[in-house]
Each structure stands twice: as C-alpha cells, then as structure tokens.
Design a protein around this nucleic acid. Structure first.
Lengths: 93, 93
DNA sequence: TAAAAATACTCCATAGGTATTTTAT
DNA sequence: ATAAAATACCTATGGAGTATTTTTA
C-alpha cells in the first residue's frame, strides 16, 4: 500500500470525479483510474459507484474517507514533528 | 512512501538489528538495509546510528517510532472497520 | 574469525504516460 | 457530439533476491 494512493483516494472522494482528481494530483486520468481499481482490489470491496457522469462513494467508501483523512493528517503531523526534532538536535550540536 | 516500509522500520527499531528484522518481515537482509536507507533519504535525516554489532535509534528515530507505531495501529483499525462496514452492507442486501 | 550491514548485480512488478475505446447523455 | 472512465500498450523505477564485500569486536 502506497501512501500516495490514499492521497489520490481523498482527492477522488472530494471531487467525485476521476479527471478532476487526476489534475489535482498532477497525474494522468488513467493513472488515477488504475490506482483506484487497485485500491479496491487490495481492500476487497468497492469504494465507488461509477455512475454516468459522476462517481459516488459507497458506504464503505465514505467511512474509509473519514478514517484515511484523519490518518493522513496525523501522518503529516508525525513527519513534521520528527523533522522539528531532528533540526533541533542539529542546532544544539 | 509504502506502508510496508514503515512496518519494516518498526521491526528494525524493535530488534535493533537488521538481520533479525529481515527474518521477522520475511525478506532478505539487504532488502531491509536498502529500505531503511531509502526511508532515511526520503525523510531527510538519520533514524539509526549504525554501531559495531548493533543498531541504535537516533532521537528522531525514537520519536518517529512512537508516532508510526500509533499510526499503523490506527491504520489497521481503519481497515478493519471498513471491512466490517462492507460486510454488514452485504448481509443486509 | 565471526557477525552484521552495505554494495553490486539481476529480475520482476508496478506506477505512470499516451493513445484509444467504451458508455451514457 | 461530448464528457468521463476504462483499457491497451509501453517505459522506467523500485523492491526483492543471491552473492559478495566491508567493518569491527
């Protein structure tokens, strides 16, 4: 599981549109499409309902969104904290 | 960033030994070694102090360990919850 | 000399790109 | 006809393996 894939998921969930998400993530639309199919396969269930001109989240997708959204915030905070810690150490030496 | 890489890190931190961690993770020692070098490069600072016959964590490494350990627990819980949600949906239909 | 990490390669899987097709409005 | 996702195909990067080297107690 790549963390980038989870960020792509958040973007798709936000836009309810693969093409827009691809733009936001600075990758091509087929790349997002494949990543989301691969994510669903990896998890073992549908995250999206592909409609006509719109993507909707399944119930599981909505829940996953909530969890992953928090988790990635915490992940970023962790990275930030450890960066700060490393820099503080540097200036102390 | 792959989540597997973070699990490898936890294992190395736990054992203070790349070879033991490799065994626990069911991969070869050079694979762990490269993954940890790549992790340090990606983060931009040292996580380990490679000693004689022992690996020690830097301060930043210790802090990263705490954060990542919690984070991966939450990640697993998220996956579990969403699995449960998806199954409940299935049986309801 | 033994134990442990790093390096040098080789191989394969996967991520991403472009072009194209499919599907529904 | 158009908008949007999926598919086909290609390439490059990265992960993992085996064999080997380096280092230090």
């Amino acid at each position: 599981m790549k963390i980038e894939k989870l960020y792509y998921f958040l973007s798709v969930a936000k836009h309810r549109n693969f093409t827009k998400a691809a733009q936001e993530c600075h990758i091509a639309q087929p790349a997002i499409s494949k990543q989301m199919l691969s994510l669903e396969k990896e998890l073992g269930f549908q995250l999206f309902e592909r409609k006509n001109r719109r993507v909707e989240l399944t119930e599981a997708g909505e829940q996953f969104y909530q969890s992953i959204s928090c988790l990635l915030d915490e992940y970023e905070a962790s990275i930030q904290r450890v960066h700060d810690c490393a820099e503080q150490k540097e200036t102390k030496e």
